[in-house]
Design a binder for these strands. Structure first.
Length: 420
RNA sequence: CGGGCCGUAGUAUAGUGGCAGUACACAUGCUUUGGGAGCAUGUAGUCUGGGUUCGAUUCCCAGCGGCCCGACCA
């Protein structure tokens, strides 16, 4: 949906917030995408909500293509299932007392919850396999929030859980999910910076896979074999691991990276204690084999901001930009305003989401600075100058040269760029 | 959770044991419109609680909050 900037909820700021060092949060606050509530806790304002929704929808499409069915589990978690898996007493919980007695925790992940629910729906081998996912707020009582959106106490997470009759089926699904994840990172613009990384399996299995996006701001250190498109997390680096994955020491480069996703083979770590099992064809009771697969849309949001930005502001990849085009009317003449209004309608009718800077009072320099800061992929300027040269000036955020085009050409140009 | 730094207007900052200042933003008016414009007028502030003091925004203590380093990160 297109919008006039005079209607937009937010304004940009001239000064960066003093209490944010992380580039992602500083820029996003300055440009009006997010609002900081507390350390590691952010609200999403209209521009930010649009980006987050685009990221989420790309993920959603891939999850649906995998056969995942979307659910929305409660954030409040009762103790029972978590006590069975010995995860109720972890410090990561935010817990709260009920007035009527008893205690609830705020979900920081949902393996226990979904496993318990599936007991109602899986009883036979005929009920398998199944995959369910949700995109939801998670709460983690981090001892130290940091790096803006990259490590928050409250954040958005897509978590997918898969249920299988045997390990072979889990393995096959796990591979498809890995490919789906790589596709997601490509689509949102992080593909060339993101690498499959062997990491610790935690308490679930020997190893797991992470997806690490190279960035100086990353908290993780990985050893990357660039040609093989595979990395090893420093936490498990050893000769054994290298041998197992066919990597050579001399081809590894040390890099900082942001963990943007992970996939785990859980096996029966949750199904056994919680009692999720099925009857096989012989009538024997067998525990369900599970996997879990996480991606944090809010962390991706911050990662993109961190990577795609310069001194002037953000530079959104096309697929996740809050708008496709930023139409800027320069100068207050009636002729300019009428032509800009017409072009705004034309862009909108063509299905190009456009933010229209129709402010009468803002100076030209302020408008350009705002356009650079907000970072919408295409900037279109209508001014007396552009009208004299035959239409509107069009420029990508990532380019410095503008070109002049008629209204029709402008619309066509952006449609082509977006393959609409 | 250990260590360090820091809380002054919506934002960014200065300053002082005795009337708290500047810039941006905001409001009104006029001017202005190709890289954060100009003039005038106006609105708006010392995190909370205790202590010392004639007097505390300033000094002391505690709390709350923020940032950084480390530890942690299923």
């Amino acid at each position: 949906m297109s919008m006039r900037q005079t209607h937009l909820l937010t304004k940009t700021r001239k000064d960066a917030p003093a209490d944010e060092v992380a580039k992602n949060a500083a820029l996003l606050i300055k440009a009006g995408f997010i609002h900081k509530e507390a350390a590691g806790i952010y609200s999403y304002l209209p521009l930010g909500e649009r980006v987050l929704t685009k990221i989420s929808n790309i993920i959603r499409n891939e999850m649906n293509a995998l056969g995942g069915q979307e659910v929305f589990l409660s954030a409040f978690q009762p103790a029972e299932a978590w006590q069975k898996t010995n995860r109720w007493d972890l410090p990561v919980w935010f817990k709260t007392k009920l007035v009527s007695g008893g205690e609830l925790g705020l979900g920081w992940t949902h393996e226990e919850a979904i496993t318990a629910i599936m007991k109602n729906h899986i009883a036979s081998y005929k009920d398998l396999p199944k995959a369910v996912y949700q995109i939801q707020t998670k709460f983690r009582n981090e001892e130290r929030a940091k790096s803006g959106l990259l490590r928050g106490r409250e954040f958005m997470m897509k978590d997918l859980y898969s249920f299988h009759a045997d390990t072979a089926d889990l393995e096959a699904f796990h591979e498809r999910c890995r490919d789906a994840y790589l596709s997601i990172f490509r689509q949102i613009g992080l593909g060339e910076h993101t690498y499959l990384t062997v990491a610790s399996g935690g308490h679930f299995s020997k190893y797991s896979f992470e997806f690490q996006t190279l960035s100086k701001s990353g908290e993780d250190t990985i050893y990357l074999a660039r040609q093989k498109k595979l990395a090893v997390n420093k936490e498990i680096l050893s000769d054994d691991v290298l041998a197992e994955y066919g990597l050579l020491k001399n081809e590894l480069e040390e890099q900082s990276a942001i963990e943007v996703g992970n996939i785990f083979k859980l096996g029966t770590r949750f199904s056994e204690p919680i009692g999720l099992s099925y009857k096989d064809e012989a009538g024997a009771l067998v525990p369900v084999v599970m996997g879990s697969y996480g991606i944090g849309p809010s962390r991706l949001f911050g990662t993109i901001a961190e990577i795609y930005s310069d001194n002037s502001g953000l530079k959104w990849p096309d697929a996740v930009a809050p708008f496709a085009a930023h139409l800027v009317a320069v100068g207050g003449t009636d002729e300019v305003r009428e032509e800009a209004d017409r072009l705004f309608d034309a862009l909108d009718r063509a299905g190009i989401e456009t933010l229209y800077d129709d402010r009468q009072t803002a100076q030209t320099g302020e408008k350009f600075a705002d356009a650079d800061l907000i970072g919408i992929p295409f900037r279109i300027v209508v001014s007396t100058k552009s009208l004299d040269s035959g239409g509107a000036e069009i420029k990508r955020r990532t380019e410095t040269e503008t070109r002049v085009a008629s209204s029709e050409e402008t619309v066509r140009h952006i449609l082509d760029a977006y393959h609409i």
